[in-house]
Simulated assay, not measured.
Amino acid sequence: MTQVVATTPGLFPLPDWAKDELADLKGHQKSDLVSGDEGPEVEAAYDSAREEVIAGQRDAGLDRVVEGQLRWDDMLAHPLAVHDNVDTRGIVRYYDNNNFYREPVVEGDLSADGGDVAAELGAAADLVDDGLQAVLPGPYSLADLATDDHYGDEAAFLDAVADFLVEEVREFPEVETLFLLEPSLVENPPADGEDERASEAVDAVAEAADADVIAHTYWGAIEEKTYAHLMDAGVDAVGFDLVSDHDQNVYNVQEYGTKDDVALGVVDGQNTLVEAPETIRDRIDWFEQQTNTAYDTVYATANTELFYLPVNKFEDKLDALANAADLEEVEA
């Protein structure tokens, strides 16, 4: 019998009060919000916002709770943007949408620098008894979003980014799951030869985690060869964006198989229309029927990060995901 686990890929929208308060504290300087050198008032605002979004996930009834990544103003580039050997330069477009981030330019070794993400997770762990989920950019996507001004070789740079994430993961508190977000596997697929290295980089990060690891891809479907290589990585599940391209994702699974567990992007993280729990369940059931498989675990999630949404719609979508998982339990 399939277990449906309601979760999210994180990167939540800041509560409205926090947006206003942080803008005021930082003098409306967006670039300072994730500088890593924040005063006590700013830290207190983020702490309060973290408590609010964790409580919101608990109230909604999600099975996995994330820290929220509210400080990640540079989105998936954040772990590099706060590194001592990285210079954040001009504003660049975040994939093909109207969001922007500061370009992280790596100018020195990506050695461990204190575990910025691990520290945030530690603060979340104090508020969550069980079901804590970590969120990280996957190594291929993080390398894709960054610029290398130090290593001088794409393969060496990808390895260095993977090693950096491995050290970050080793600093984590106890977590049940880790979502590695890999939209670049879809948006900027690796070339021949690079696809195997990308899979090996994902594998290295997954190997470091004492948790179930999901490599979540979105904004479409992965090219067949890249998907076949990703299946070699030691992750517990691959995530599929059924909102953007359900047919090609199903084809990949039909043709190449997948893990015993699967993550399904069944809620639109960029559209304010709120899906009914029954619609979410129908999408999960449809995927199982099309792939002729009853999975051990289905992670029901939004297809993308959620910072695109107004706070009220974001909260409604959390409720819908949790209620969809409850529907599965009732029907079983």
Score class of each variant (00 low, 15 high):
137 P>Q: 01
140 Y>H: 05
127 L>S: 14
107 E>H: 05
143 A>Y: 05
114 G>M: 04
125 A>N: 05
121 L>K: 06
131 G>I: 02
123 A>E: 15
100 F>N: 06
114 G>I: 06
133 Q>D: 05
143 A>F: 06
159 D>P: 01
161 V>K: 11
146 A>G: 01
99 N>C: 09
161 V>W: 11
113 D>S: 13
163 D>F: 07
164 F>K: 10
170 R>W: 01
169 V>E: 04
144 D>S: 11
137 P>L: 05
169 V>K: 09
129 D>F: 09
125 A>G: 01
159 D>G: 05
159 D>C: 03
170 R>E: 01
122 G>E: 14
159 D>I: 03
176 E>Y: 00
100 F>W: 05
110 L>I: 10
105 V>Q: 09
131 G>N: 01
99 N>G: 00
107 E>M: 11
150 H>P: 12
129 D>S: 15
117 V>W: 15
168 E>Y: 08
144 D>I: 05
135 V>F: 11
107 E>C: 06
154 E>T: 10
143 A>E: 07
132 L>D: 08
133 Q>I: 06
126 D>H: 04
104 P>C: 13
146 A>P: 05
144 D>M: 03
177 T>C: 00
149 D>V: 04
134 A>L: 04
107 E>S: 08
143 A>P: 02
122 G>Q: 12
107 E>T: 13
146 A>I: 03
139 P>K: 13
124 A>N: 09
145 L>D: 01
163 D>S: 13
138 G>R: 14
172 F>S: 04
153 D>M: 12
124 A>I: 07
175 V>E: 02
102 R>P: 08
127 L>F: 12
134 A>T: 03
100 F>K: 04
147 T>L: 08
109 D>G: 00
132 L>Y: 05
